[in-house]
Amino acid sequence: MCSDCGCGDPDVVPLEIQGRILADNDTNAGHNREHFAGAGVLTINLMGSPGAGKTAILEATARHQAGLRLAAIAGDLATDRDAARLERAGIPSRAITTGSACHLDARMVHHALHALPIAGVDVLFVENVGNLVCPAVYDLGQAANVVALAVTEGEDKPLKYPTMFLKADLVLLTKIDLLPHLDFDLAAVKDALARAMPEPRVIAVSAKTGEGVDEWLAWLAARRAALPAPTAGAAAHGHHDHGHGHGHEHGHDHSHAHDHGHAHDHGHGHGHDHGH
């Protein structure tokens, strides 16, 4: 049977494996998840098409949040423009420039965590590369997936990109301030979502007018409240809810951000980013 090496008739033996091809990414995602649990931070993987309004929603989140400490990791093929926008909005951020990679993976996020301290942070957003396909495949260690779908994209996107919406815990229907100018059928998009998501959850928002942002903040607060108690070693974030809540947004508050107990070696990071 063997024709090329003259070794006779070697056996062809099957070797059963039955393992996830992305097991290595899963392991790294699990490691990230431990970091997030230890810090008591709610991590949201924010996905959506290029131009769906992901960055704008995070900017609006920073404008409207009341006392939530935010941080972000922003993935982009070629630039750090999104991370820079988020920094200007008062969200300490790190860019991951992926080069040609169309998605973030758990290792990239872990690497970014080295440069972005999360102790004391309430919600960490991972703004994925703009793409409705690839990012859905990679677990990053997030607590929830949120997909931004702009009303300018058309009602049938959930049917065209079922994997992305299957993975979504929440769909943010963005740019709804544009609805008067469009023939967008809200019932049609809800019907499409019901065929892609077993438990569709949609919040309609406008980053521009702020409509729906309170409902989005309430969703975040509920997800955060549902987190298990932080694991030992990074036990203190309960305290963080008081005190220096507005820290990131207003430069004058940064001095307060220090000296809050055990987390100091991490905690300073935010302040320094803003030129202290």
């Binding site: 070794c7 070697p10 033996v13 070797l15 039955q18 996830r20 992305l22 077993p198």
Partner: peptide, 20 residues
């Protein structure tokens, strides 16, 4: 509904031709 199958990305097995 629950997804019974259709989200697999699995390496099932390999076939090796063993040398003598």
């Amino acid at each position: 509904a629950k997804l019974a199958s259709g989200d697999e990305i699995v390496l099932q097995r390999i076939e090796l031709e063993l040398d003598d």
